[in-house]
Design a protein around this nucleic acid. Sequence first.
DNA 1: GCGCACTATCGTCAGACTGACGATAAAGAG
DNA 2: CTCTTTATCGTCAGTCTGACGATAGTGCGC
Lengths: 229, 229
Amino acid sequence: MIRGMVAPMHVTVDLVVLTVRVGEFLALTIRRKLDPFAGRWALPGGFVLEREDLVDAAVRELSEEAGIGSMRTHLEQLRSYGQPDRDPRGRVVSVAYLALVPDPGEPTAGSDADAAAWKPVDSLLRSRTLAFDHAAILRDGVERARAKLEYTSLGAMLIPEPFTINELRAVYGAVWGREPDARNFHRKVSSAEGFVEPTDETTTRGGGRPARLYLRGPARLLHPPMLRS
Amino acid sequence: MIRGMVAPMHVTVDLVVLTVRVGEFLALTIRRKLDPFAGRWALPGGFVLEREDLVDAAVRELSEEAGIGSMRTHLEQLRSYGQPDRDPRGRVVSVAYLALVPDPGEPTAGSDADAAAWKPVDSLLRSRTLAFDHAAILRDGVERARAKLEYTSLGAMLIPEPFTINELRAVYGAVWGREPDARNFHRKVSSAEGFVEPTDETTTRGGGRPARLYLRGPARLLHPPMLRS
DNA sequence: GCGCACTATCGTCAGACTGACGATAAAGAG
DNA sequence: CTCTTTATCGTCAGTCTGACGATAGTGCGC
C-alpha cells in the first residue's frame, strides 16, 4: 500500500518519569537486561505495538516497567528523537513522554530490566551513564518540567496529597535548585485562583506551627506565572 | 535484530507552515495528487527516508513541497501523531514540525501535489477540509505559535526584514486576532533587550510619519513576556 | 505653501505584582 | 514556661502594564 522505496522503521516510546523525594529531584531509570547496552542504565521505554496508540504505549510502559498507575500521573508527550544512528539495532524513532508523579516509593523492575531505581537528575545529567541518547531526552524532559513549573500548577503533581504549602515549596526548590522565599511563595500560591484547595485539616509533620493541608486545585495554567527570576 | 513480534511502521513528517500576509494569518496547504484523500487539501509532508534525520526530512519537504529555503525559516518540532487508524494505508506515525516564515509569495506545488496555497488559518480550522488528522495538527501548531509569540521574539520571523514596529504589531494582531495597543506595544518591543535592532533607516510605506526600520535582534526569549491578556 | 489626515513616538498615571524582609502565631522540646 | 521552629500575615519600594493624552513628522489636496 505504501511504495516500496520508503523503509519502515521501528517506533518506541521512552519515558522521562520525574518525582521529588526528601528535597531531591529524581528520575526513574532501569538497568537494561538485554543488548544493546545490556547492564547500562536507561530510561524506561519499549516498542509501540502494532495497533497501539502512542500514549497508550507510554501508559503501558509506565505500568510494566515501573509499576506506576496512570491515575495520579501527569503524562504528556515530550518530543520525538529520530537520528538515524541513535539505536545500533537499526532505524528506531522514539517518541518521548514526560511523566510527573508523586513519589510512589521504590520501583519494581519490569521484564526488560534487572533493576529499576530513582536517581538524582543532576548526577544523571552530569555523568553520561545513560544508554542511547537518553541523556538528551532526560535533559529535554527536565527542561520542560522546570519551565512548566513556572506557568502551570504541575508542581503539585510531584507530591502526594494532601500537602502543605511548604512541602510544595520544597518541590520548587528541588526542581529549580533554589528555594523561593517562603512568605512570597505562600502569598502567591494561596492567592492564585484554583492552584490549591485548602482543606480543614492541619499537620505538624514539618515541626513548628501547624500548617494547613491542601489538595490540588482545578487550575492548570497560572496567570500570572510564578517566576524563577 | 529486533524481535519479530514488533511491527515496523512508516514514519512521516508533516509541516505546519505559518506566515502573515496583509494582516491575515495563513497556513500553507497542498492539494493531494494521490490517494488516499486525492484532491483534498492537506498539510505538506512526506515519508522520512531510510537514513534521514527527522529535521532533515522536514527541511527537505519544506523545500520540495513549498519551495521554501531553510535560511530565513524558524523550524521546530511540534509533536508526533500516532493513532493506529490515522492513515488508511496502514500504520503511519507522523512527526509534525512547525515552521514560521516571512511571506515568501505564492508557493509552487511539489511533485506529490497538484496545487499549493496559503489559506487563512481560521477558515481551515473551522471548515474540516483537511485530510488525515491534519486539522488537529494545524490546531496544535497554531496554538504553539500563539503561545510562543508571548514569551519569545518569534513574531519577527513572520515578516521580512527590515520592518517597522507597527508592521510587527500587525503580526501580533493577525496571529492573536486582537491588536495590541500601538503605544504600549512600541514601548514594550523597543525596550525589550535584543528583541529588535534599530537601523538608521526609516520608511513611509505605511503612510504618516516616517517609521524607523528594525532588524530581528539576537534575543530568543522575552523577560518578562508579552501578555495577550 | 498650508492645513489636514495619518501614523510614529514619547509621556503620564493608577493599579497589579514582585522581592525583600519585619512581625506575629502556634505548635513541640527541654 | 521559655526557646526553637515553622506558618502565616503585613509592609514597602520598585517594576511592569493597560489606558490613554500629547506631540512629532510625513504626504496629500487644494
